[in-house]
């Protein structure tokens, strides 16, 4: 675990959006979408960020991509803090950090052909290239994501969901990134196609030494692809551990509830399994509850939970959890 292995390190990341303001425009209330995240990703590994919608996982991803400038906190990419860089200073990093979206259809220009979409990304660095080289590179990228290079003349609407997601991946890979932020890349796909894309992610990681920040709400998928998993709730990480530990030894009541909600295909286990159905919904981050953010939905909540927020503590073996009752 030597320091140079860490590709990305996030310290006390906070992202607050103004929600209400006074008549003069001075904000009085904030949506605390991300409220103090600490994590790091080793080069060549996959870090999974899980949680329900509205828990701030996408916002965290957008901060890492520097689509948002975080309110507070530091983002170290290979040791350099990129959280306060200006747009022009950011340019070299943009190439290294790419993203893949959930909805491949919404993120592809319907009037651009497949080849042209990838070509645009290849040419984005502004370097002079021979047309022949560009064509070869586009073909190489399409082959890399297991698309037939002859599809270059097609348009996104002629492709299936799985093929479109492959195209999105090819585009992200065009400038040889080191870190890819994947925001729910497989949740819109059918199981059979989902499995193909997950396998593709893993084989690309092996081939190109990629590092992933993998954002998803499906624990089974994250458990499968990630090395380390962080469970987020209302802008906080409530539990962080090795992916293997997630299933074997979940500690936080929220993680347990999430796990019990994941449907599995083992009939006999499923019949016996107890389900923890969480009541209600995630509270609004504008009126975040006092103390532990999870206490209004937690069946083990005590008086202490209502007043004091638990901190993320090491429970042994690199397993962090934020709960008073452990």
């Amino acid at each position: 675990m030597s320091e140079p292995n860490i590709l990305l390190k996030v310290e006390n990341l906070k992202m607050h959006f103004p929600a209400e303001s006074t008549w003069f425009g001075k904000p009085t209330r904030f949506v605390k979408a991300v409220d103090g995240l600490d994590f790091q990703i080793e080069a060549g590994k996959t870090f999974g960020l899980v949680g329900e919608s509205g828990c701030g996982k996408t916002t965290a991803g957008k901060c890492v991509l520097r689509i948002f400038e975080p309110t507070e906190g530091k983002i170290y990419y290979q040791g350099t803090d990129i959280s306060r860089l200006t747009d022009s200073q950011l340019k070299p990093y943009r190439r290294n950090i790419q993203l893949i979206f959930q909805d491949p259809y919404g993120s592809l220009d319907p009037r651009q052909s497949v080849g042209s979409i990838v070509r645009e990304a290849v040419l984005a660095d502004g370097k002079k290239r021979l047309d022949l080289d560009v064509k070869a590179r586009v073909e190489e990228l399409l082959t890399l994501v297991e698309l037939d290079p002859s599809m270059a003349g097609r348009y996104p609407h002629e492709m299936s969901g799985g093929q479109r997601q492959r195209l999105g991946i090819a585009r992200a890979l065009a400038c040889d990134p080191k870190l890819i932020v994947c925001d729910e890349p497989v949740s819109a796909l059918d199981v059979s196609i989902q499995a193909q894309i997950i396998n593709l992610f893993e084989s690309l990681q092996k081939k190109l030494g990629l590092t992933y920040l993998f954002i998803a709400h499906d624990l089974a998928v994250v458990r499968h692809i990630a090395d380390t998993v962080a469970v987020m709730y209302l802008g906080h990480i409530v539990e962080m551990m090795d992916a293997g530990e997630l299933y074997a030894n979940p500690m936080h009541p929220y993680t347990k509830a999430l796990l019990s909600a994941v449907p599995i295909t083992d009939y006999y286990t499923e019949q016996k399994r107890s389900r923890i159905v969480l009541e209600g919904e995630v509270p609004s981050p504008i009126h975040a509850p006092s103390g532990c953010p999870f206490h209004p939905r937690c069946q083990f909540a005590t008086e202490l939970c209502k007043t004091q927020a638990p901190s993320l503590k090491d429970q042994g073996g690199n397993h962090l959890a934020a709960c008073h009752n452990l």
Binding site: V191, S192, Q194, A195, I198, N199, E202, D218, L219, A220, V221, R223, H224, I225, D227, A243, G244, Y247, L259, V262, I264, T265, D266
Partner: peptide, 14 residues
Amino acid sequence: AVPKLDANEHEQLT
């Protein structure tokens, strides 16, 4: 093709 919760990590999905 369904990812299993108790499968080995990074196992190839069929």
